[in-house]
């Protein structure tokens, strides 16, 4: 490649990467302003809006609810997803294909349509506008994230290792605990993290299935933006960005991003 072409390509790439990062940078920067208004670039630097955020009772309740829903979702989905991924590994042929497609379905179907179906269905079985209904919906939508990541890790596992373990006298449980689990731990953690973050950030599902008297953080933020337009919202958003960055770092440390 000639030098000008290379420079041009580099410039285009930089622009696109910049475009991807821009809104995140703007949100974090705006949350650090010392001024009264949400603006970019920020006027002076301070953490006062973070203090305001952590003092806002409604937002705090929402944060706690979001964390709780995400935590329950993560545990449930990681266990169910791991079991399903183990089943997927043990099956072959059409059964394996069908199981995989079925488990990916919540990811392939538009979130809006799934939420609408759940809105009707949960109402009809008496779980409309309840926390447990919302919890189930989160589990359904995040299950594919856990499954895909764990199934991918299992695919990397040499079946001979399990054969070796069994031939050495280990029971199925021993083999799972001592061989399979340690070797796919990275995939499980990644899946769990994705499930957690997806649940924590989920908007449309929570919006349609909002339990009575319970707002998740994205919903509270949405409400907040509708009437208040101060940097508290940016601080709230920045908190979830920081959470995401922590997630990326943890995943990279454990498994490496390129294995996704």
């Amino acid at each position: 490649m000639t030098v000008p072409l290379r420079l041009g390509a580099g410039f285009v790439l930089a622009l696109i990467y910049g475009f991807i990062l821009l809104p995140l940078v703007v949100v974090i920067a705006s949350s650090l302003t010392a001024g009264e208004l949400m603006q970019f670039p920020p006027q002076g630097l301070s953490l006062r809006w973070f203090a305001r955020f952590f003092a806002d009772e409604a937002l705090m309740q929402a944060l706690v609810l979001s964390l709780r829903v995400a935590a329950v979702t993560t545990v449930a989905v990681t266990v169910i997803g791991t079991m399903a991924a183990l089943a997927h590994r043990a099956l072959s042929g059409w059964a394996r294909q069908w199981l995989r497609t079925g488990l990916l379905l919540p990811l392939l179907l538009p979130e809006l349509l799934t939420s609408i179906g759940l809105l009707f269905f949960l109402y009809r079985i008496g779980l409309g506008k309840t926390l447990i209904g919302l919890q189930i919906a989160h589990a359904v939508v995040t299950l594919p994230f856990a499954f895909v990541s764990i199934a991918a890790a299992l695919d990397q596992l040499d079946p001979a290792l399990e054969d070796a373990s069994n031939s050495l006298g280990a029971s199925g449980w021993d083999t799972f605990r001592h061989i399979v689990l340690p070797l796919v731990r990275g995939g499980i953690v990644t899946g769990a993290l994705f499930a957690f973050v997806t649940s924590f950030d989920m908007f449309t599902v929570s919006f349609l299935l909002k339990p009575i008297g319970g707002n998740t953080l994205p919903l509270a933020l949405f409400d907040y933006l509708s009437y208040d337009y101060d940097p508290t919202a940016a601080a709230a958003a920045a908190v979830s960005v920081v959470l995401a960055i922590a997630g990326v770092v943890v995943i990279e440390k454990l498994v490496g991003l390129r294995n996704l």
Partner: peptide, 20 residues
């Protein structure tokens, strides 16, 4: 860089554009 937005909610990303 490519993956990090996936981990940040749609709401937050839209919020950035709201400011911009």
């Amino acid at each position: 860089i490519v993956i990090s937005p996936l981990l940040v909610g749609v709401l937050v990303r839209n919020f950035g554009w709201l400011i911009i």
